[in-house]
Amino acid sequence: MSAYILRRLWQMLPTLMGVVLLVFLLFNWVGGDPAYILAGKMSNPEQIANIRAQLGVDQPYWVQLWIFVKQIVTFDFGASWSTGEAVSHVLATRLGPSLTVLVPLTILETLIAIGLALGVAYVRGSLTDRMVMIACTVGMSVSILVYIIVFQYWLAYKLGLFPVQGWGDNFAENLFHYSALPILIGLVVSIAPDLRLFRTFFLDEINQDYVRTARAKGLSEPTILWVHVLRNAAIPVVTHVMSNLPALLIGAFLIERFFSIPGIGREIILAVERSDFPVIKAITVYVAAATMLFNLLTDLLYKAIDPRVQLE
């Protein structure tokens, strides 16, 4: 087992280097000399010269790359070009709010989607099944922007059921008061695609031979679904949920932006709008690393739920 983990970590290095290279190429080569961006933000020429020296823009590329790598390893990217806040501080403080919305959202949406998908799988082929699927398709064709705009307008602004935006200092307050509508919107948007996907997983399993054996043993349909099929379908479901998580972090950016939740997603939008390279670079590299670690975690989890898997 530990040999496997070591080998995987070792294999991650080329990919991480690839991401670093990609980010570097994008921002240091294509992006070019940031002086013109900085000039609009800070009027102090010494400051600009300082940053340019830090980045080493007049140095050969491999020196710049080395500087970048050092920054990654030491978690020190300097300061944000627009707010002057230390980038590491930015990352550290924004993670919390993002997770406060995302974790409950993921748990709720997975459970609800599984339950609904099982229900739909039970009545597969019927009119209900088709209607639900069409409803999902229609629901998915409306942009998330519309859901946010309309829900925010109706439920928060007009009916006053939720706060229109904002964030507090108290965790409980954040979780139940400020996150409620964002989580609701997140649920509405993500249940439809997950329902469709999980339904496919369940139907694939229902057609397997072992289900026929279970019927031949005299088990009832609900038992077969909840015990046999679910246990097998859990494998692709878990894979899907786990591999989606890091993307969710960024995907919630719209919600964060509209509701002024100080999370990573909103930070990235602001950074892109302001061409704040250090923040963008840092977030990209660390999220990529997190994704790779998550994949490793997923594979280990795989072993726990699928006895056929041999980690070699």
């Binding site: 990609l22 921002f27 993307a247 960024i250 892109v272 963008i280 990529a288 790779m292």
Partner: peptide
């Protein structure tokens, strides 16, 4: 596969935004 891993490690939207920021 290396290309694939690199591109999929960075969440899709993040990649788009990053490129949009630069261009």
């Amino acid at each position: 596969n290396w290309f694939y891993s690199v591109f999929t490690s960075v969440p899709y939207l993040l990649l788009i935004l990053a490129v949009a920021a630069v261009l």
